[in-house]
């Protein structure tokens, strides 16, 4: 029990360390604040007029989608940070200390979750300012945010694996982008799936992003269709697959 508590304490120390750096690295800070807000404004005011979303104002349609995309990218911090820590010897420093060895990875992903929560709050605030409205109860909205954070955690583990496989911090980040960008765009995040060519439609419908974005719409806007359990299953499933793979990879990398 005391070991478990120490492990939690160590994880919080590492989490704090990972968060402290963000305000000091202008590129990261911009990535987590200005960039998502800019995307919200661009989509609403530039593309919004041209995209048909029957039954919705575009800003209402967009917000669940763009929050999901931002959260999926949150793991970028883990990919870049983990890669840097390995390369610069900080992981060795941590591993020579009497701390829980799991705290290095756990502290990384927990920092992502906290950053994702802050980015979500910021985007919701901007959304509300430009006309976005929740159409459901507070518990439903909170459940939606929790679901998205869980989905983001799954992507943190995917990004962690990228960070452990990549040869540099930069390439760790760009591999992540290469994976997440097509997945988010070929989904219901920004446009209705029905507007895509049939081949893409088939992909978009099976895409976990579509399922999660639809679940977020159900919880934020009260749209019909129940993909909430499927979204939960996808999130947990991705974590169940990628967390052990990333941990195993981490063990192999540090053993050499």
């Amino acid at each position: 029990m005391s070991q478990l508590l120490a492990g939690i304490g160590d994880t919080l120390v590492i989490t704090r360390r990972n968060l402290i750096r963000i305000p000091r690295a202008p590129d990261l800070l911009i990535g987590f604040t200005v960039q998502p807000v800019m995307f919200v404004l661009l989509f609403v005011y530039v593309f919004g007029g041209a995209i048909k979303t029957p039954g919705f104002k575009y800003v209402d349609y967009l917000m669940p989608g763009i929050i999901t995309q931002t959260i999926a990218f949150g793991g970028y911090l883990t990919a870049v940070g983990l890669n840097e820590d390995l390369r610069k010897g900080l992981v060795d420093r941590f591993r020579s200390l009497p701390m829980a060895r799991s705290a290095v990875l756990a502290g990384r992903t927990l920092a992502d979750v906290i950053m994702n929560l802050l980015a979500t709050a910021l985007m919701v605030a901007v959304g509300l300012a430009i006309g976005f409205r929740f159409a459901t109860s507070v518990p439903q909205v909170l459940a939606g945010i929790l679901l998205l954070l869980l989905f983001g955690l799954a992507f943190s583990w995917i990004f962690a694996l990228m960070g452990l496989l990549a040869s540099s911090a930069e390439s760790a980040g760009s591999i992540g982008f290469l994976i997440v960008f097509p997945l988010t765009f070929v989904s219901s995040a920004f446009v209705p799936v029905q507007s895509m060519p049939s081949l893409l439609q088939a992909f978009a419908k099976a895409n976990p992003f579509t399922i999660v974005v639809d679940a977020a719409r159900a919880l934020f806007l009260g749209t019909p269709g129940n993909s909430i359990w499927a979204a939960l299953a996808w999130s947990i499933g991705l974590i169940a697959v990628f967390a052990p793979v990333a941990v195993a990879r981490y063990r192999r990398v540090v053993a050499n």
Binding site: G9, R17, R21, R93
Partner: peptide
């Protein structure tokens, strides 16, 4: 092996907490 983004104080404090 020190964290570039942390201050000197924060680095040592972190290590102390991890001990």
């Amino acid at each position: 092996a020190v964290d570039e983004n942390l201050t000197g104080f924060e680095n040592l404090e972190m290590v102390g907490r991890l001990y």
